[in-house]
Structures are given as C-alpha cells and as structure tokens.
C-alpha cells in the first residue's frame, strides 16, 4: 500500500489536474490586460462586465438556453415513455433498443453533426435552428432513458395494478402513481440533459448559420478574431453556473444516485 503522504500527493495531483484549469480560467478572466494571459496582467472585473455587453453572446446564450431547456423537455417526452416501456414490458429486443438509444453517446458528435448537416439541413432545407433542436434532443435522449430507467426499476408494477383496481385507467395509473414516484429521477435527467446540451460543441459546430450559433461555438469564433480575456470570464461564469446546478441537484435530489 502507498504511504499516507503518497496517497495525499496522488489525490492532490488528481484534483489539481481536474479543477486547476477552472481556477486558471477564473483568474485569466480577472486580468486587466488586453489579452488572455496567465498569470493575469493586473486585476479588474472589466472583462466580466464586458461579457454582458457583447450582443452575439447574448443571442447565442438565448439560443443555447432555448436548446438546453426545450431539447431536454423533448427528450424527456420521448424518453420517459420509452424508459417505462423498456422496464415494464418484455419488449422483444429490449436490450438492443436500449443500445441503439444509447448510440448518440457512442458515436462521435462530430459525425452526428456532419450527418445532420449533410442529410437534413442541406437537402431538406431544414432551418439550422430546427436541426440543432433535433440534434440536441437526440443527444439528450440516451441520458433521459438511462436515468429515468434506473429510477423506474425500483418501482414495483403491482402499485399500478392496485391503482387500476381502485378505478384508474392504465394512463391514469401512470400519471398518478408512476410519475410522482420517479419525479426525482426525471428532474435528475433534466439537469443532466440541460448541462449536456449547454456544453455541447462537436455537433453544434456543423450546425451554425448566419446569426444562429450556440454559445460555445460563438465563443470559439469570437476567440478567432479577438483574443481578449472576456472569453475566459464568460467560461468562468458558465462553469460556475454548471457547478451551482449540479450542486443543488446533489443537495436536493441526491443526483449521484442516478448517474
């Protein structure tokens, strides 16, 4: 076994490796200089303030928010019944279906993005926003199915039968008995889906058009032209947002049970 100090060193290095960049970004954003540097060139909050004045950031933030919220809702609308069906009924090839549903996690996003561009946007004249929405829904779906399935597995089917015998329809039993009991799983899936969508780069990379870009893509292209610390400041703000969301999820829902 490792000695106490070796263990501490390993943990320390691991944490530095995982969290270190986060601090670098925060500090780089605090710089007073004109360029992104580390260590920062003096200290000021002006780049954090500037983030809010860049119009393209505001637009792409709105688009990213829209995609994260409605993409996740759409994925849940598809995913919750799918998870229910897979865990309740002995569907032929149920396992295969589960694997296929998980495909967007396995297939590199860049391929998904290219495929959507090549076969939906270009030939079928789909708007970029619609293609983005579909892509994000498809990306979140596997998470929705997985997370909701695992909370569904603890739910005995005789509860629904009891509800039916007390007068419920099958659908009524689902909304009155199943949904309230998988509530926290659905919320966990929502948060996971939201964060996944919001941070999504490779798929969205191909699906951008004039004035239609998700926030991460917009940040990339901003950086190609202007290398000032505002992107670092924005990144820090976004990372903070994610941390807050996940922290609250863990605190209120015991999020880590489901993932």
């Amino acid at each position: 076994m490792y000695s106490k100090w070796t263990t501490r060193l390993i943990i320390g290095l691991t944490l530095t490796f995982l969290i270190g960049p986060f601090f670098i970004i925060i500090l780089a954003g605090l710089s007073d200089g004109e360029f992104m540097t580390f260590p920062p060139d003096g200290i000021s909050l002006r780049w954090y303030a500037k983030v809010f004045t860049v119009e393209s950031f505001r637009d792409s933030f709105k688009l990213s928010m829209f995609l994260a919220i409605f993409g996740t809702i759409a994925a849940l609308i598809l995913g919750v019944p799918a998870a229910y069906a897979i865990s309740r009924y002995k569907i032929p090839y149920g396992e295969t279906i589960k694997t296929i549903v998980a495909a967007p996690i396995i297939v590199p996003g860049i391929i998904v993005g290219l495929a959507l561009l090549r076969y939906l946007v270009v030939p079928l004249n789909f708007t970029v926003t619609l293609a983005l929405f579909m892509a994000h829904t498809a990306l979140i779906l596997p998470y929705a199915v997985r997370v909701v399935s695992s909370s569904m597995n603890n739910l005995r089917s005789d509860m629904e039968e009891a509800a039916v015998l007390l007068g419920c329809s099958r659908l009524g039993a689902f909304t009155r008995v199943v949904l309230p009991n998988i509530q926290s799983g659905v919320l966990a899936a929502f948060i996971l889906g939201f964060v996944t969508s919001f941070n999504q780069v490779p798929v969205s990379l191909f699906l951008s058009g004039p004035g239609v870009r998700t926030l991460p893509i917009d940040m990339l292209s901003y950086m190609e032209i202007t290398y000032d610390p505002s992107v670092a400041a924005l990144s820090a703000l976004l990372a903070l947002l994610s941390v807050v969301i996940v922290f609250m999820a863990e605190k209120f829902l015991g999020f880590s049970r489901y993932v």
Partner: peptide, 17 residues
C-alpha cells in the same frame, strides 16, 4: 379491471409510497 368493482389486497401490499 377498473370497472369490475373487485378489490385485491396484494401480498406485497402495493401501497403508494
């Protein structure tokens, strides 16, 4: 089943948690 007016007490009780 929901129109039969028959009650069933399950072995597992099947209460709504």
């Amino acid at each position: 089943a929901n129109k039969r007016g028959i009650g069933l007490v399950f072995q597992s009780y099947a209460l709504f948690p």
